[in-house]
Simulated assay, not measured.
Amino acid sequence: MSVEITNESAIPVGEVRLSAIAGFVLDEMGIHPQAELSILIVDVPHMAALNERWMGEEGPTDVLAFPMDELEPATRPGVAPADSAGPDDDNPAIVGDIVLCPAVAISQAAAAGHSFEEELHMLTTHGILHLLGYDHMEPAEEREMFGLQAQLLKKWRAETERSRG
């Protein structure tokens, strides 16, 4: 996976780990290994401007997702693909752009009682799922998306612990 991270904020975000979890999630979701994802890290004024322009809401938000190509996951976690070689194998796609606001993530992490890094990993996973067409507007969609998000993060933590151990 090609994950490009540009940090335009003054807050360090651990780009190597952020890129690693993004690649992990894309891989788990069956996205072509040469697909491209861009993650932009911005300050509060920039995020507030994007949120107002694209979502019609005032103030900053934690994550925004801007899909590029219409993608469908080749697999869902725990489900083997029906045919591992398909027409898209020669056409890696541009997944899209995720915009994160670390200042918002810091306050959310404190409120949730976990680390800033955990919050960024959750927001990155959340953003990728949005890029892949998941949403949480309806209760059933919310259960599916947040359940998948939790499953991916749990697997990420387990693999990270295993590699450290």
Rank of each mutant, 00 (worst) to 15 (best):
V3Y: 01
E4M: 09
T6F: 03
S9Q: 05
A10E: 15
I11C: 04
V13P: 06
R17H: 10
S19N: 11
S19R: 15
I21G: 02
F24H: 06
V25I: 14
V25Y: 03
L26R: 03
E28G: 03
P33R: 11
P33V: 04
Q34R: 14
E36L: 10
L37S: 02
S38W: 12
S38I: 04
I41F: 02
P45V: 07
E52R: 14
W54S: 09
G59W: 07
G59D: 05
G59Q: 07
V63I: 15
A65K: 08
P67A: 03
M68G: 01
E70R: 13
E70M: 07
L71S: 04
P73W: 00
G78N: 07
G78P: 11
A80F: 06
A82Y: 07
D83A: 13
D90K: 11
N91S: 13
I94L: 11
I98C: 01
L100T: 12
P102F: 05
A103E: 14
Q108N: 15
Q108T: 09
A110W: 03
E117Y: 03
H121V: 02
M122T: 10
L123H: 04
L129M: 10
L132P: 05
G133A: 06
H136C: 11
H136E: 15
E138I: 02
P139D: 07
P139G: 04
P139V: 01
E141V: 00
E141C: 12
E142C: 12
E142H: 13
F146A: 00
